[in-house]
Design a binder for these strands. Structure first.
Length: 482
DNA sequence: TTTTGAGTTGTTCGA
DNA sequence: GTCGAACAACTCAAA
């Protein structure tokens, strides 16, 4: 009888999981495996928020597998050693997995594949994370795309819909002698209870992902292109962490969204369906870029930026930004939302990134590292693209003169201050007109609101106008030098 | 090969 | 208050 190991990584779901589906077609034993491979020498190990998510997602996956007659074997790495061990124990003749796209993961997985194949163990990998593989979408010259819009057009031409496979109702039982590390022993939960704000807003795991998708389709998709800009509304999908851990795949999303568009055209106009799928395409584009330009997690794609005059390392400014104490309420609200919930609304991410890279002129890598550790949706491809786009040094980057003004953005996208008051409660009693710029409020208004600037809430750490001009000058310098 | 059109998300200034 | 232009060229993609 054949024995197939299904190595779960960022594909923590049973529905439309190509590797699992392939294993179940062998009609032999199937051993679902997860490896804590933090012993592998990989850069970009899961940050604290990601580990929190992973803990809960693994518990969910494990329970779901058990409910279907199987279970999840959890081992500690290095991955190759753990796999080899399990192959020996179970006499497995095949290992399957869904592919990862971080450069270091690709290298590791290829080495493992080579090694096992030499030893006569079949290895097969699948696409469970993307609509199309990064090497499949190329321009007419056979080169990767560097601009989003033509990429998006090419993606639509290639097709957004694929047949999905259902989750198996039952799975073959696990041999009962297999050892497994309990999830709790992996030590991924925080020792201090900083996750109090995470628990009410997230449900890691496949069921949570499906639930969130349905909620999004029913409540937000119809008005997506407008609603997604207002952080106090549930206008975005909030599927990013589910997507990162593969509790839901983009193909499932495309089928669901296009299906809804066809069946309920009045509730889901084409403009809204494609407006959302376009964002899924951004995720796809990010993976495309990281695959073809693997150094972009660390280095600017635009080499001119190697000479950009960033501000000399400034601990206090960076810390003010990280802790939401910049004195710009819109930015501080975002940074605190991030710290408390592991997530930040996209509209606000752009503003905090703009302040860090343009006004404070701190290297975008500082921001990328902070996001990496604090976001539950931390994803190397998306994070790298986002930060390089914001800093202006990436593919299809924001024009250098696009410098967000946190006051204007706040007034435009949170005019009544609902979002702001949630995350910066010390400004609660300030009238709306001063909320996004408390330093302009007359002293008597501040006093009545119980605010003492510099004490109960910081004064701005940087002057917007001056720092904007300095940033533009720095860009001019860059242009001159090249 | 050459040419042409276009490029996520903004701000400021002056009329 | 509203509106259009300026902010820079440059590279990418495709005809």
């Amino acid at each position: 009888m054949s024995v197939t190991i299904v190595w779960f990584r960022q594909d923590l779901r049973l529905t439309d999981n190509p590797a699992l589906t392939a294993a179940l077609h062998t009609d032999g034993r199937v051993i679902p495996l997860f490896i804590d491979s933090s012993a592998d020498p990989l850069p970009w190990r899961d940050g604290a928020a990601s580990r929190w998510w992973l803990h809960h997602s693994l518990k969910a996956l494990s329970a779901e597998l058990a409910r279907r007659g199987s279970g999840l074997v959890i081992r500690r790495g290095p991955a190759e050693r753990a796999l080899r061990q399990l192959i020996t124990e179970t006499k497995a003749d095949k290992v399957v997995w869904n592919r990862l796209y971080e450069p270091a993961h690709i290298a590791r997985d290829q080495a493992i594949k080579r090694e096992f194949k030499q030893q006569g163990v079949a290895v097969e990998s699948f696409n469970g994370a993307l609509l199309h593989e990064p090497w499949q979408v190329l321009n007419a010259s056979g080169e990767p795309y560097r601009v989003f819009t033509p990429y998006w057009k090419a993606l639509q031409r290639s097709g957004l819909e694929f047949p999905l496979s259902d989750a198996a109702a039952t799975l073959p039982p696990l041999p009962d002698t297999l050892e497994s590390v309990p999830v709790a022993e992996l030590g991924w939960l925080p020792r201090m209870a900083w996750d109090a704000g995470f628990r009410p807003v997230w449900t890691p795991g496949e069921a949570g992902a499906q639930h969130q998708l349905e909620r999004f389709l029913e409540t937000a998709l119809a008005d997506y292109t407008t609603g997604r800009d207002f952080p106090d509304r549930p206008g975005t999908s909030r599927l990013s962490p589910h997507l990162h851990f593969g509790e839901l795949g983009p193909r499932q999303i495309a089928v669901a969204v296009l299906g809804r568009m066809r069946h309920f055209p009045s509730e889901c106009p084409e403009s809204q369906a494609f407006g959302y799928l376009r964002e899924i395409a951004w995720r796809e584009f990010a993976h495309h870029l990281l695959y073809h330009f693997p150094s972009t997690a660390e280095q600017p794609l635009d080499a001119r930026f190697n000479d950009f005059p960033w501000t000399a390392d400034d601990g206090p400014l960076l810390r003010a930004w990280q802790t939401g104490q910049t004195g710009y309420p819109w930015v501080d609200a975002g940074m605190r939302e991030l710290w408390q919930t592991g997530w930040m609304h996209n509209r606000v991410r752009m503003a905090v990134a703009s302040l860090l890279t343009k006004n404070l002129r701190l290297p975008w890598q500082h921001g990328a590292r902070w996001f990496w550790d604090t976001l539950v949706d931390a994803d190397l491809a998306n994070n790298s693209l986002g930060w390089q786009w914001s800093a202006g040094c990436g593919a299809d980057a924001a024009p250098y003169f696009r410098i967000f003004n946190p006051v204007l953005q706040g007034q435009r996208f949170d005019p009544e201050g609902t979002y702001l008051r949630t995350w910066v409660p010390e400004l609660n009693r300030l009238p709306d007109r001063y909320l996004h710029q408390p330093w302009t409020a007359p002293p008597v208004v501040l006093r009545e609101a119980g605010i003492e600037l510099g004490t109960t809430y910081p004064l701005p750490v940087v002057d917007l106008k001056q720092s904007r001009e300095a940033a533009l000058a720095a860009f001019a310098l860059l242009k001159e030098a090249n």
